[in-house]
Design a protein around this nucleic acid. Structure first.
Lengths: 339, 339
DNA sequence: CCTGCGGCTGTGAACGTGCACAACTTCCAA
DNA sequence: TTGGAAGTTGTGCACGTTCACAGCCGCAGG
């Protein structure tokens, strides 16, 4: 009775497993972790004992002795509002959760939008509470990355970490090729006055997608039809308005994100331009936004699922001792009704 | 030199603080945790030593001895797709992260959409890896809640947990009053044939918002103008199409979520109905969707910030030994262009 | 037959913390 | 003066795990 009650109340420890299997703690630990130097019979006995006792390793005790945590922090350095305005972040978060769960690694969500948040997050990570960091930060020059590199904790960035290339692992879509493909598509549709709304110049998406645009159109003619946005819907509206004021005769716009493109569509609509008859509009990301605009948006699909999967793989590699690597993944043109 | 190097490499422990403050480990522990029975001079010395050593308590060691984790799991039981389609989940997630961070409690994000995920999440939580659970699950009858109640780990639900009222703590908006207010608003605008698109009948939002609608219109006349949706955009489209087929002369629709309302707007537009001239449309949630539709949506604002704050407060109360409580929070009518 | 070696196993120590307990001080009332 | 109460402090132990080490066995080579 007493034994049964204890077993029911307290979680099974490695001692219980050892006793049930008729071996020692060390053997159980070896069987479960390394798997080396354990006889087949002992391994089988341990496996059975684990099943009957319902043993799950105590992570606190484990990370106390191994001096490192098993969990991974997903850190978002954008101002908080972005998390719910831009669907891309949700997709990334969901993908990473999924990919990590498959490796039985819990994900801690942390934000570092304000200075207070950044200090708190930085301190938390430096305290060794997590074994790795997935950093989603588009803007360069974020002090958090400096802090993290100083701690020596494995970090994988989403998108090329401008200024840290080669020193920080990252996974990213091939922004430049994707942008090139979309602008080529606009030309194939017969468009001649093609403008662009870029992302901020201190973000990889802002730089690379503009580069792809210029690959097709050349730097000279392009220079006069470039406006910068900030990836927000409102930013897209403002940039589109500026473009129309500068060049009323434009017949196409390549917008560096779907959210900004949605804003641009509104402005074009209010200005009496028909899409795609008068002006063709191309976006970037293929987020849910692209499917819900009117007309539905032609865009460049980012391989978010592969990106998140690669981020997790790179992080696990890093913790295994590999040097920082990069994964550049191909994009895909999705043609809908706006071009 | 050696001391300096050690201090730089290894994290400061409670021993280091005790040595620096000239007291014992026990006093340091008391000063930091309880604060009771510690002389002012000792407390001051400890405080100073903590600052100079940069001491941060080792959470692994702490939870090993206290037998409970400090972190909180945010569990989403909806199918994964919903996370990025419905902005409400992002808002909830962001709010909880924020509120927990203020208490220095890390948030673990877990999903339980499929059976495999649910089993994994359930096992993880049962293993004692988290100190509490914030459960975001609209549908009733989810086996996860049963699992969780069995473990005895504190749980706070978001929205009334149908079938567990009084036994599980929860925070929710006053759905019924909010729906009532919106339908009254439609009548004040002179509408007479008011239909409704509800949420699923096994969700609190599906039940309560329909109840509010009936409070105003009476059960009899209402019965013929009710269609069920599933909170998705596509579900809203389908339900709107069914309503139009049943009652072409309707002049208003109360839709139980903004996302479904966005779908309904599309269908009304394609059917040649002008909004709000021919048909007034009201939504629920006041999510970003409501501001980006054309016309902008009249809706009921859910006090998400207060909801998340209350969820966290209820959870902390629970861990402190209080019995499960509920927090019902008032909503607000937001009038825009669709009514 | 002894020696060495490689595979396998058990045992003690350590990780850093909170808590129970004992010891010590101070102070006041009997 | 003494006793005890109240407040403050130090110390041993336990939490559950991994790791290094030592001991055991069987086997092959000298």
């Amino acid at each position: 009775m007493t034994v049964d009650r204890d077993k029911a109340r307290r979680r099974a420890t490695i001692h219980d497993v050892a006793a049930a299997a008729g071996v020692s703690r060390g053997t159980v630990s070896r069987a479960l972790n390394g798997g080396r130097n354990v006889s087949p019979s002992a391994a089988e006995a341990v496996r059975r004992a684990v099943r009957t006792t319902g043993y799950v390793a105590n992570s606190a005790a484990r990370s106390l002795v191994t001096q490192r945590a098993h969990s991974v922090a997903f850190v978002l350095t954008e101002p908080q509002q972005r998390l719910f305005e831009d669907p891309n972040f949700s997709v990334l978060l969901q993908g990473c959760t999924q990919a990590l769960a498959e490796h039985d690694v819990p994900l801690l969500l942390m934000t570092a939008g304000s200075d207070v948040e950044r200090a708190r997050t930085s301190r938390f990570i430096a305290a060794g509470h997590v074994g790795g960091v997935l950093l989603v930060s588009s803007h360069t020059g974020n002090p958090l990355l400096e802090d993290l590199r100083h701690t020596g904790i494995p970090v994988v960035a989403c998108g090329k970490p401008l200024g840290h290339e080669g020193r920080v692992a990252y996974a990213a879509a091939d922004d430049r090729a994707g942008a090139r493909r979309l602008v080529e598509h606009l030309r194939e549709r017969g468009r001649r006055r093609i403008a662009t709304i870029t992302g901020p110049p201190d973000t990889p998406g802002g730089v690379e997608r503009l580069a792809g645009y210029r690959d097709v159109l050349g730097a000279d003619g392009a220079a006069s039809l470039v406006e910068h946005g900030d990836y927000s819907r409102a930013g897209g509206e403002a940039a589109m308005a500026r473009l129309l004021a500068r060049e009323p005769g434009l017949d196409a716009v390549f917008v560096a994100s779907d959210l900004m493109a949605a804003g641009a569509l509104d402005v074009l609509h209010d200005a009496g331009r028909r899409v795609p008859e008068d002006v063709a509009v191309g976006g970037f990301d293929d987020s849910v936004t692209a499917r819900s605009t009117r007309p539905a948006l032609t865009t460049v699909r980012q391989p978010f699922e592969r990106i998140t999967r690669e981020m997790v793989r790179l992080l696990l590699d890093l913790t295994a001792g590999h040097p920082p690597a990069a994964a550049i993944l191909p994009t895909e043109l999705v043609v809908r009704d706006s071009t």
